[in-house]
Structures are given as structure tokens and as C-alpha cells.
Amino acid sequence: MTLEAYLLVGAALFSLGLIGALSHRNLIALLIGIELMMNAASLNLMAFNRFVVTDPTTGQIFVLIIIGLAAAEVAIFLSIILRIYRAYHDIDAEKLTKLSG
């Protein structure tokens, strides 16, 4: 596999994540979409790490930290979803439109 292939897969992953984040009404699905986008970035980093970079540890560390931070992010977002659920009894993104204009 060449670098281009990895990058294409990464781009596809990013786009899929994006589409997921944009099309799903469920907040959790939205979250998953965004996580996919981050994973696309991780994939890119690893690919570059493999093909371009002289020092192979940098990308790996980067990706590990991304994974860690993503976990934290998910935790925070889930707690917010919980709060929303308590108020609305629903986690539909389209219903959260009290604020506009």
C-alpha cells in the first residue's frame, strides 16, 4: 500500500464521519461521526509516520494522545447528553432549536 492509498482511506473516513455527523439526528450518532473524523486524522498521522517521517515515534505518540483525549471528550459530551435527556427526554439534535435567529 502506498501513502496515497492510506490518505485516500483517511479522506474517505473523514468524509464518512462528516456525513454521519451531519445526517444523524441522534446526538450519540453525531458524536460517533465526529470520532470517525478524529480517527481519520489519526490514520493520516500514522500513515505519514510510516512513509515520510524519520523519527517514527512522533506520530505514534500523537495518535495515542488523540485516543486518550477523544475518550475524555466522549465522556464530557455524554454527560451533556444526559443533561439534555433529563430536560427533554429525547436526544434528537433537531429538537434542540430553541435558540436561533
Binding site: S23, A93, E94, L96, S100, G101
Partner: peptide
Amino acid sequence: TRVQGGWMQLYL
């Protein structure tokens, strides 16, 4: 302000 439709995915 219609751009600001209120739906978060629209913003995104």
C-alpha cells in the same frame, strides 16, 4: 439571521 437556523447540524 436565517443562516442561524438553530439546528446544530445546520451550523456544522
